[in-house]
Design a protein around this nucleic acid. Structure first.
Lengths: 342, 342
DNA sequence: TGAGGTATCGAAAACGGTTTCGTGTTAATA
DNA sequence: TATTAACACGAAACCGTTTTCGATACCTCA
């Protein structure tokens, strides 16, 4: 096991000072070409790499960004993360990831773990519990301390910071209109508990479209499903009590399960009933019939979030403080597949 | 924006030395109870948290572990990562993740980025390209430098280090035997190019079972599919040229696609043909019929990998060098679902 | 009374870099 | 020849901790 080589070693070996070595490696013009060559050759030979930790301590910049997300075994978050990681790496940043597991406490603990110099800024999406409790003192604290923060997807209006969101309401409106244009009369909404910010906005878009077509929003047509542990009977009951000819689902799984039950009941898709779901994951692509979806462009969202964060980090480093926070909106698109009529 | 408070600030304010503050906060018995109380109260009041970077520089330990995986939008890797993150966090470690994107170059660059003091050790799974080229000099370099390294799933025999793998061959043997016991006579193997270590081992298990039942391994029954961009016609052609009554697939997607084509051809599942796939992801659970799978227990694999790494990191820190590398084997299990006869 | 012990604290080195400023040498200029 | 500027380099401070090694003051006991 070879010892990691440091400036000190090089300096001793070449009988020059540490400062000379440091400067020579940076090609400073204070140093003669002769010594530069010597030092650089030696450094290359022994594969010298500056110690990141030492550099970070000196610069007060780590080139690490912290990402806190509710779940990692989850297609949407994964794609966003992909975008973050991609952009960050291109800019020479590393990404430290923590999973809050939809838990408020874990979210708080994770952020405290990271916010002691380990990272230059946060990108995060709120946990379910945090949205439910609506307690964001930990976020405020981070922002107060001057740590840049970018929220994506599951955001909150109570905090002033940079944000990246989907045009949820608008695209839900578009999706619903697409179903209406198919001639659907009894369009259902499959959704989660309402404390999810995004679900609420999607529901708004759904209602807006119905209203525009002069339709009443029938509460019997709203199917609220639990986040986990969905029983088929819930969907059966729903089909029993509500005549339905289309379903807009706030996620992929709900849609797939509704399709599955519909098929068992002998309904023809998309003739008798059509489906649109949010999230362009594997399920939608490989289901039978394939599912028409709202593509959320997670990678793009992640890239934008990373860019916003890094821009802010670097501008703060240069002392030019921009104090206006921005909210970027990613335009979702509808991907037509077999579960709707085209 | 409040300045981050340091030992120096506390020391100045309380008119004691930095060392006293440091010791007081650690409850050292060199310090009187009086001063301890004063210092601790002040620290709590101003929410003092030690700067991680400075601590890392001093201890030469970062409490960060680096994870390099080929893909993040991928169920198996995601679950493994979940296990890593879970165990690591419990032990007070953070996880820095880099995605190699199945590219050799990115893998090398990522590892170089991290291996300059940013992390205490690596957990990784080889990229496709790395396996293909069979070039692992970058890994050897890391190990030579004394950085602990744990390989999982996509490992290599050419490197001595800790490893965590699945009992791929054995479970493929079991799965194939399960199909044989169903009375299947023409069992196909849907697989990737052979340079994937794990695919090769699964193929071995498949052959072993066939041999045990006195069957020839018919090369017409091996369907090699590309990693991306699978055309349905490839599967159509396969069904055309080979009479098949069961398929063992090295992943989920191949199985799902084979099922889809089989259904279109009017084959009854599992009566006419049965399926087993590797990876217990969403697709298998929500497909129609649901897919019998080999569960790889990614979370457990991740936890084991993290434990192996952290154990080694900490034992090295204590100077007690264990020089025997271990290979842990995770036992896969078969989850019976609708695509096979039970 | 003086040696030794204990309690409490501070100075300083160290981790591995970056950066400012000063200094000695040489060469150009008045 | 004396002054000065350019050149090449080193000393030292600094980032925020931890930790070793005194140093002082007070106390105890022979």
């Amino acid at each position: 096991m070879k010892q990691k080589i440091t400036l000190k070693h090089i300096a001793r070996e070449l009988e020059v000072s540490i400062s000379t070595v440091s400067k020579a490696l940076k090609n400073s013009d204070e140093i003669s070409d002769d010594t530069k060559e010597k030092v650089q050759a030696f450094a290359k030979l022994y594969n010298y790499k500056p110690n990141n930790i030492a550099v970070s301590l000196k610069n007060k910049r780590t080139k690490n960004i912290g990402v806190v997300i509710p779940d990692i075994v989850h297609h949407f978050f994964t794609t966003v993360f992909r975008g973050i990681e991609k952009y960050a790496n291109e800019q020479g940043y590393n990404v430290i990831i923590c999973v809050s597991d939809e838990s408020f406490d874990k979210e708080v603990i994770n952020m405290e773990m990271l916010n002691n110099g380990s990272i230059d800024g946060f990108i995060m999406s709120l946990s379910a519990e945090t949205q439910q409790k609506n307690d964001i003192t930990h976020l405020k604290q981070v922002v107060d301390q001057g740590t840049p923060l970018v929220l994506f997807d599951r955001v909150t209006d109570e905090l002033e910071c940079d944000k990246v969101i989907l045009n949820d309401q608008e695209i839900a409106y578009e999706a619903t209109k697409k179903l209406l244009k198919e001639g659907r009369k009894r369009i259902a909404l499959a959704t989660t508990e309402s404390y999810f910010n995004v679900s609420e906005k999607r529901a708004d878009g759904y209602r807006q479209a119905l209203n525009e077509y002069g339709m009443e929003v029938d509460n019997d047509l709203v199917l609220v499903l639990p986040y986990n542990d969905i029983q088929e009977s819930m969907i059966e009951d729903f089909y029993d009590r509500a005549k339905v000819d289309a379903i807009l689902s706030v996620n992929e799984i709900f849609a797939i399960q509704c399709i599955s039950v519909a098929k068992k009941r002998g309904m023809k898709i998309p003739e008798d009933i059509s489906f649109i779901g949010f999230t362009d994951g594997l399920l939608s692509r490989y289901s039978n019939p394939t599912l028409t979806v709202v593509a959320q462009h997670g990678v793009k969202m992640g890239e934008i979030a990373a860019k916003m964060l890094i821009d802010r980090v670097e501008s703060e480093a240069e002392g030019s403080i921009e104090d206006t926070y921005r909210t970027e909106i990613v335009q979702a698109t509808i991907l037509d597949r077999e579960s709707t009529i085209n």
